[in-house]
Amino acid sequence: MRKVTLEMLYTHPIVQKYVGRSGIAHAISVAERAFEIARHTSVNPDLAAKAGLLHDIGHYKWYSTNGEWDFDKYKQYDIHAIKGSARAHKLLVRCGEDLENAKAIALAILLHTDSYLPKGELELSPLQQVVTEADEADEEPNGAHHYRTINYQTGLDRIRALDERIDKLPLKDLEQTS
């Protein structure tokens, strides 16, 4: 049985604050996509969904002087994956997540984007690949995916439905780590 559910995370004030400012609708979509991708691979769908939900928990909105999103500044200076990885790890551990799983999720968040990394090749784990693919599949030009909205109850209903799908999976699927 899972110690930490998506609903526990979604309703947590830290998630509402930090994921909320980067786009809850996007986070839920990425969690759902990551779950689906993971189901067809050897990746734990629970870990994939959690990493998908939390992948942008470290976002900072880069604004220009006129109050508009400055996408160029974001691309040049962003380190949201670094901040998000640490924030998610702390949250998961405090909520009671298995430590190995918390680390795997945090690393998937750290490496879900290469916007802050120096040029070069990086070999991602299967979980990291799933989260990256799910995020990229939900992206919109100029960061518009961060501005999609969803009301709290609709988001909660989708999260609960995803928790139910995870709970119905065979135990062997949830024993995989990354």
Rank of each mutant, 00 (worst) to 15 (best):
L54S: 05
A102L: 11
H40M: 04
A31E: 07
Y60M: 14
G52K: 08
L92Q: 07
R39H: 06
G58L: 10
K61N: 11
L53D: 00
I28G: 02
Y63W: 08
S22W: 01
I105H: 05
H26I: 00
L92A: 04
A102C: 09
L99T: 13
K73D: 04
W62F: 15
L47H: 06
D56Q: 00
D98M: 08
F35Q: 09
V43H: 02
D56P: 01
L54I: 05
L47G: 04
L92W: 08
E100A: 13
A49Q: 06
G84M: 10
Q76S: 13
S64D: 15
H59V: 07
G84K: 09
A27W: 00
G67I: 01
R39M: 15
H80Y: 08
E68R: 13
N66F: 00
L92Y: 01
I79F: 14
A81S: 15
G58F: 10
R87G: 02
E68C: 09
V30N: 01
I24C: 05
L53W: 00
G67P: 06
V93M: 10
G52L: 06
G23M: 04
D46V: 10
K90R: 14
P45Y: 09
A31Y: 06
E68V: 11
I24V: 03
K90Y: 13
V93E: 12
E100P: 07
R94V: 05
I37T: 06
E68M: 11
S64W: 08
K50A: 01
K73N: 09
K73V: 02
L99Y: 13
